[in-house]
Structure formats: C-alpha cells, structure tokens
C-alpha cells in the first residue's frame, strides 16, 4: 500500500481527525479505485466528493455530450463545455480539485457488454445510473466479482440508498427481481436532491473502503426532502435471487 506524502497529510489533516478513520483510513482511500456510473446529477457529486476525500483512482463511465438540461444538477458539467463530451468535462473539473487523482474516463454508459470490464477496474462501484438495465448489469458483475456496490437513486425530492456487499447483504435483484415497468429515464430532479444523496453515497463508499462507521448493509435509507424525513428499513435477502442466491 502506498504511504501518504507530506502534501497529502496536509490536505487531508482535518478528515483524518475523524475517530475510526485516521491516517490508516486515508491510506486506504489513496490506494482505492472506485467506479462511478454515470456522472450525472448524482454521480457528479459522488465523484467530486470522492476526489475531495482523496480516493486514488476514479473510473468514470458516462456517454454523450453536455446539454443545457444537464446544467441544473450535473455539477461536473459546465456551460463552456456544452456540446462536448461529458466525461471530459468531469475529468477536467475533478483534476482542478485534486491534481493527484488518477482518472479513467470511459465515454460509454454501462451495458451488459462492458460491465464486467468496468467493475473489474475498481474495488467498489457507486451506481448512479438512471436506467435499471444499467443498474442490473453492474449489480450482476459486482456479485460475480464479489465487490461492494453502493446503490443510490432519486426521484423528485426523494432518494434511496443501500450498500450491497455480496454474500452478506441483499443485492439489487433481491429487491427488484425484474425491470420495474413504470420507470422512465426522464424524471423530476433538483440538483440539490441528487447532490444530497450523492454526498451520502460518497460517504458510504468512504466508510466501506476505510472500514469504519456503519454502512447501510442490509438496510435501505429513504430520504424525503419534501418533509425532511429520513427512515431506514431492514432488508431481507431473497433466497431464490437469480443473481446472488448461488453466488
């Protein structure tokens, strides 16, 4: 494991004061690789917070070019970058914050074809995809490769988040064994909502990598910013889950 440099100690000093984290936790972040897909309203903030916290390597998967309708929430995209690749805008913004960061920028969304290779490049995935087909592909590969995946999602002023550790917790397919028929890619969203759950998902990833705190293992948090309620539910594994029952 690579040790911290004096410069890194200076940058991360205040978070290393956190009980249970310390220099050992920081060293774990430095040596960790995280896949974030996609880098939209949620994934932008996840990637930004992980870059700020000192995760060593980020694998970013996001297709397409920056559009005006991205700019209310996709905080790694900028007005000046309209019409140019989103993932390059994300890379540029992240390196402004943390020039030590190693970034693998993939100009594709996750699919059945590329999921295995993308998940293999990281120690942990944060799933920020707007389509269940992409989420299912990442979940399947995370279970097959025995790697944790933070599942975070939002709709309107609501959000849910749970952390999957294969073999220990329910996986996404335990909760939703098939594609929910009503879900559409376009949904009401404020950047402040996707940003809130993005920060929470980043903190889940930091806790799992550094091995401190109590991540949402086998629990789902449901947040409603309309009335500022926060509830957690204890989840069950599906013994007949097509993805994780035999894993």
């Amino acid at each position: 494991m690579h040790p911290l440099t004096d410069e890194e100690r200076a940058v991360y000093e205040w978070q290393m004061w956190s009980p249970g984290f310390g220099e050992d936790g920081q060293r774990r972040l430095k040596n960790a690789s995280v896949l974030v897909s996609r880098c939209g309203g949620l994934g932008s903030v996840v990637a930004y917070e992980l870059a700020a916290a000192g995760v060593g390597r980020l694998v970013l998967a996001h297709a397409g070019v920056v559009k005006p309708s991205d700019l209310n929430r996709q905080l790694l995209m900028t007005h000046a970058w309209l019409g140019r690749p989103r993932v390059e805008s994300a890379r540029r913004r992240l390196l402004e914050l943390n020039p030590r960061l190693d970034i693998v920028a993939v100009q594709e969304n996750v699919s059945e074809e590329n999921a295995a290779g993308l998940v293999a490049q990281a120690d942990l995935t944060v799933d920020c995809a707007p389509l269940f087909s992409e989420r299912f592909a990442m979940n399947r590969q995370s279970v097959a490769q025995a790697k944790p995946i933070v599942e975070c999602a939002m709709y309107d002023l609501e959000a849910t988040i749970t952390t999957v550790v294969p073999g220990r917790t329910p996986c996404l397919a335990c909760l939703h064994p098939s594609e929910p028929p009503q879900w559409k890619r376009e949904f009401p969203v404020f950047g402040a909502v996707s940003g809130t759950v993005g920060c929470m998902a980043a903190m889940e990833a930091i806790k799992v990598i550094a091995g401190f705190g109590d991540p949402l293992l086998g629990r789902m948090a449901q947040i409603d910013l309309r009335d500022m309620s926060f509830r957690t539910f204890d989840l069950q594994r599906d013994e007949s889950c097509p993805v994780c029952a035999s894993a």
């Binding site: 996609r38 939209g40 309203g41 949620l42 994934g43 920020c128 995809a129 707007p130 389509l131 269940f132 989420r135 999602a153 939002m154 709709y155 609501e158 959000a159 849910t160 909760l175 939703h176 929910p180 009503q182 879900w183 949904f187 969203v189 996707s194 789902m220 449901q222 509830r231 539910f233």
Partner: peptide, 10 residues
C-alpha cells in the same frame, strides 16, 4: 405499511 415504488434517478 410502506410501499416503496422503485426509483432509479441518477
């Protein structure tokens, strides 16, 4: 009784 309808917004 809570009924969580699946969401996937990112």
């Amino acid at each position: 009784l809570t009924v969580l309808h699946p969401i996937s917004g990112g």
